[in-house]
């Protein structure tokens, strides 16, 4: 994190200068850059992942397709269209808890979860969760019994992972939209229960 105001102002100036240079060279335009930023934000939201999860909770056939081929199943709902990436959805059960990381950089299912939280990109998280996931999860307030197998998925740029959390108890009466509202970003990464 650069909380340093001076560094921030210096970098901002240099970014602006690079933009101007590249505009002069005819490589970019301000409008194209605006469009790229808007597209990045418009296609990417944790609400997308939540919708996918709610569908999987209420439709067993969809759930099976999602676990067999995540990319195709989320494309059914209009997500990740035209993406060069693949998606693998990993299911939490009574005996298995999944958690996602990218130790080498910061790969993340952006289209389904939106831009990642700062902690996901931090060296502290990336270094520790593959080594001592139970301790890391406790820092997030999640203590798992020893009987639960913790599986850490170290992502690549080509295949992104998303966790299918367990459906909370006493939610039988809720419809898909209400269920989606219960799903949190951290639950989709695996650092929180529902």
């Amino acid at each position: 994190m650069s909380g340093d105001h001076h560094t921030d102002a210096t970098t901002a100036r240099r970014v602006r200068r690079l933009e101007t240079l590249l505009e002069e060279k005819g490589l970019i335009t301000g409008e194209r850059l605006d469009e790229a930023i808007d597209a990045f934000l418009a296609e990417s939201s944790p609400a997308n992942g939540a919708r996918v999860v709610a569908r999987a909770w209420t439709d067993d056939a969809y759930r099976a397709r999602l676990l067999a081929d995540g990319t195709a199943a989320v494309q059914e709902l209009g997500h990740m269209e035209g993406s060069y990436q693949r998606l693998r959805v990993v299911e939490n059960t009574e005996s298995v808890h999944n958690v996602i990381v990218c130790t080498l950089c910061s790969c993340y299912p952006l289209r389904l979860l939106g831009p990642s939280p700062s902690w996901y990109k931090s060296e502290a998280y990336r270094s520790r969760v593959v080594r001592e996931p139970r301790a890391v999860l406790r820092e997030f307030g999640l203590t798992l019994p020893d009987s639960v197998d913790v599986v850490v998925w170290d992502s690549s740029a080509e295949t992104r992972y998303m966790v299918l959390p367990r459906r909370p108890q006493a939610t039988e009466g809720l419809d898909e939209e209400e269920l989606a509202a219960l799903v949190t970003r951290n639950a989709l990464i695996g650092t929180a229960p529902l």
Binding site: V130, R131, P133, V151, V152, D154, S156, E158
Partner: peptide, 13 residues
């Protein structure tokens, strides 16, 4: 096998 201890698993592409 990765760390000499621990009871979890790591999956890597």
């Amino acid at each position: 096998d990765l760390w000499g201890e621990g009871d979890h698993h790591v999956v890597l592409d």
